[in-house]
Design a protein around this nucleic acid. Sequence first.
DNA 1: TTGTATGCGTTATCAT
DNA 2: ATGATAACGCATACAA
Lengths: 306, 306
Amino acid sequence: MDAAAHLGYRPNRIPAIMQSGRSYMVGVVIGGLENPFYATALERLATALRESGLQVLLMHVDDALTLDSALDQLVSYRIDAIVTSLAIGSAAVVRALSALRLPVVCFNSSRVGPWISTVNSDNHGAGRAAAHLLARHGVMRPVWLAGPTKNAASHARGTGFCTGLCATGLPPAHLTTVRGNDTYDSGYAAITQLDRRGIRPDGIFASNDMMACGVIDALRERMGLLCPRDVVVAGYDNIPQAAWRSYDLTSFDQHTEQMVARAMGLLDEALGTKDTPLSRTHVIDAQLIERGSTGGGGRNDDPAIP
Amino acid sequence: MDAAAHLGYRPNRIPAIMQSGRSYMVGVVIGGLENPFYATALERLATALRESGLQVLLMHVDDALTLDSALDQLVSYRIDAIVTSLAIGSAAVVRALSALRLPVVCFNSSRVGPWISTVNSDNHGAGRAAAHLLARHGVMRPVWLAGPTKNAASHARGTGFCTGLCATGLPPAHLTTVRGNDTYDSGYAAITQLDRRGIRPDGIFASNDMMACGVIDALRERMGLLCPRDVVVAGYDNIPQAAWRSYDLTSFDQHTEQMVARAMGLLDEALGTKDTPLSRTHVIDAQLIERGSTGGGGRNDDPAIP
DNA sequence: TTGTATGCGTTATCAT
DNA sequence: ATGATAACGCATACAA
């Protein structure tokens, strides 16, 4: 042992991988790190994986095109499983993933198939809750700011919101839907577009917080509408910026800690029952965090704020 | 080939690693993904590495304690090199890294040693530029909001700022220094503390943008000071949120694209001259992005904004 | 308990 | 050009 320490010897896990067929590496496929939600989710996932003795082989992916080649790369390193936060939209991707015959755990993906398990936020339920929240504030001209059509989670939030509005007695015809691409700028642009169409909303539910922040800024700068005085706004993800005082944004927290824990459970199970496709779905309740943008935190009413 | 495709055969790179002694995996050691700057930097780094045919073995690390065990893990996977954005503060960490006899590339770390190369933003120069910027705005009571003492980059920015203030003829005694920990909340708290001490700044340079955002909010809420009317504020990193309209924050862009490109160059060079310790330093100019928080963008003067 | 041979799936070398 | 074989460093199984 002394000699080993002196020579700086470190055991080599590579032959062990060959021998055992297990690499203890997990391919983590992620996109959109510019969204603080995914960044913090990755941080938690990486921490949890390491605590389970698993390494993170990271694969950043921009679009579905690069995904295929990315998967080949990952598989050639004999990863034990794949965890992805990509909103798996297309059936082709699901087929590609299933064909790997590797455990796959997805976050917020509606698509399922053999070998694929998912951990989802209760997007539909949160959408309904958002509708009831807006209804409590007497909103008569609600707007739903959707994410990209590929985004299954966004779709579920939208249908939930619509369902919730109906339940509160508001005719669906009163609902205006606009679409963004999950960025701040697209939220800002969506409001600019509403302004041009002459629509003055009094309540907005955005598919994520980044767009909601853009919405709040555009309402003030473009339409002269203050939040929550003139319009209430809610987002999704509860990113750190939602708590920043300039936005003070009501949002739905996905409880990424819980979601990651569930994902780890699925992973352990799938890795235990090797060579047997597992396909499970977990749904985690989202928690409404009421802040000033819906009059909840109350601090936006603070007279100290001009 | 048909049979291979039919059977879903994928070449196995693990034996190739054993054989060639090269894994084409790079250990990426990172902390603080909740800071959008590091998140986007990681995204760019991961993309660049993949374009060079290198895999990312990600290691998220909270403190120096976990770093040691993390390094052992990485090394046992026979990574070819290490890239880290950690502000390497302690000499012990440098010794541990050098002992690995692996190429190491650091971002914004002042510590150097054999096998360790660094790519740094011109922190000192940017600090001086910040001082001149504030001087141009007639600032008489400047405040420097430093990051953690461990953070070498923050220290360089601070000394540069001090140097620059002297150069403009402002006595250093007029400079107030407060310290945060690079988070929004710590920026907010720093201003709260200034308020308690009865200090009313008219110009603030913060070591990073997240703290600067907290500063802007606290100035308004705690001291009733508007930016840039009563006080000018500049940050560092040019995170996406700096461009969000509620902050419209003047900042220094580190040009992470360039820094990543330089890091890749160092990596290629170090991997080419295998078994020979390389130790180089590159310094990249930071670019001042003037926005409304220093009256630059001008949009915060927009009468539409209350 | 300690020691020794074999195999993992490639790459590289050597012989044909 | 094509084909056989050793070697990478560890884990496993079996022998002593």
